[in-house]
Computed example of a mutant assay.
Amino acid sequence: MSDFSLEMTARDVPHLEEARNVIPRRTRINVTFLEHETLELRLGAARRVRELGFVPVPHISARRLESRARLEEFLAALAADGAAERVFVVGGDPVVPHGPFASALSLIESGALPEYGVWHVSVAGYPEGHPDIDDAELWRALEAKATELARHDLAGDVITQFGFDVDAVIGWIEQVRERGIGLPIRVGVAGPAGIRRLVRYASRFGIGTSAGIARKYGFSLTNLMGTAGPDRFLHEFAARYRPEVHGEVRLHFYTFGGLRATSEWLTDFTEGVRR
């Protein structure tokens, strides 16, 4: 539970300010790159994360960038605010790239990141697969990104999509290590949220079925108005985690807009484990 990271959107700044006293200082906070959010909004969010004493990790969506100049504009502005050291790069949702970058790999290959002070790059991992990309291609991409980060002398890690199946996550991590990828891994975890919202997000990202999610998380689909937390997932994962096999692993919490609720839940959960 030490050194966990959180995720927010650029519009969640008021929620971050509300939760600031229950989040440990220097916590890594990822700021997503959503299509409807302006460059100024994204930059302002990353700046505010840093001002509040946390570590900003701005997302860069490769296929949403219209040009290399647009990428460099974003990176230069982040650097001016002292928020460019860590970034998360992902291909993004558009099927057809808006500009020259067809993938996160092509963005890393461009060499632009270290030119603006980036030294740590997070990339995506998909333990339960991706609805639009086959597993073989996902593995080729992850191996290539790890190689390219090393070629550019960039530190990095893998942040996974949130999931509900410990078997899938453990098995995927073991495959990562068997393939010789030594990057630290941050396992994506859905923070406490309404059951209806959890099911909706899981369906959107192709992560299991509603019945499967309910079985793994221990809630009933007959009570969609209730809430659920990742207690069972985390206890089972901790029981099966072996550092000598799985390497360095941390947790990354998807807050679904509930930064304070997730942070308070984390505090209570950690204290309960220590007792």
Rank of each mutant, 00 (worst) to 15 (best):
V166H: 02
S2K: 13
A104D: 06
H235W: 10
W139D: 11
R28T: 01
A45D: 08
Y116L: 04
P114R: 06
S2G: 00
E73I: 06
D268T: 11
A45V: 10
A10S: 15
G188A: 08
V57I: 05
V90F: 07
A124N: 09
G111A: 12
E128D: 04
I173C: 10
A19Y: 11
R42M: 12
A150T: 12
V199C: 14
R200Y: 12
W139P: 08
L198S: 03
S220F: 02
H15M: 13
A193I: 10
A83I: 03
L138V: 07
L142C: 05
R11M: 08
E73Y: 00
T270L: 05
Q175M: 13
A190F: 02
L251K: 01
F162W: 03
V189T: 00
R242S: 08
A144P: 03
A239S: 14
R197C: 00
D132K: 14
G258C: 01
L259S: 05
A261L: 06
F33G: 03
E137T: 14
S122Y: 13
I170Q: 01
I60H: 07
W172I: 05
T209H: 03
E178F: 01
E18P: 00
G163C: 13
G53N: 04
L251I: 05
Q161N: 11
M225Y: 07
L154Y: 11
G247V: 12
V121E: 07
R70S: 15
I181R: 03
H120S: 05
P94Y: 06
G91S: 15
E109N: 03
E115H: 04
V121Q: 07
T209C: 08
E72S: 04
L52T: 12
E143T: 14
A76W: 03
E85Q: 14
F219K: 06
L266N: 02
L183S: 11
Q161C: 06
A202W: 00
L52A: 09
R232H: 04
F33W: 15
L251E: 01
Y201T: 14
I159R: 12
L16S: 11
